[in-house]
Amino acid sequence: MRGERAYIGRGVAKFVGEGEALVSKQGISFFGGVDPKTGIVREKGHDLCGADITGKVLVFPKGKGSTVGSYVIYQLKKNGHAPAAIVNIETETIIATGCILAEVPLVDKLEKNPLKEIKTGDLVLVDGKTGKVVIR
């Protein structure tokens, strides 16, 4: 047991959320890549294909694809299938816009690489207000 670890990053969407981590090494396009009605990843060949992001702390490098992806994050929230929070290595405007509209906490630019520090299944708290990410 390594015990509780905390990392400081940049709080982009200033909300707080907690959940089980789901880690991907690949970029995510919410438009076309995630089903807004179920929260299941649909992109063929993606390392999360078939996984359910509902209530998870989703950890991935950054967003990609169409800017409509912002609206998909909002729709996931309305359908009860949004992730509890998102942690990016360095975010971009599609994910940032979606998270702010949908009130999903978003933190990026952690002092250490989140893809290495966080493992799928870890219980993670993301505080977008302070930029703090705590792995329990």
Partner: peptide
């Protein structure tokens, strides 16, 4: 971001 085909139910809502 006006076309329903592009923004879908999410954008409309």
């Amino acid at each position: 971001g006006v076309s329903y085909g592009n923004i879908g139910d999410a954008g409309m809502e």
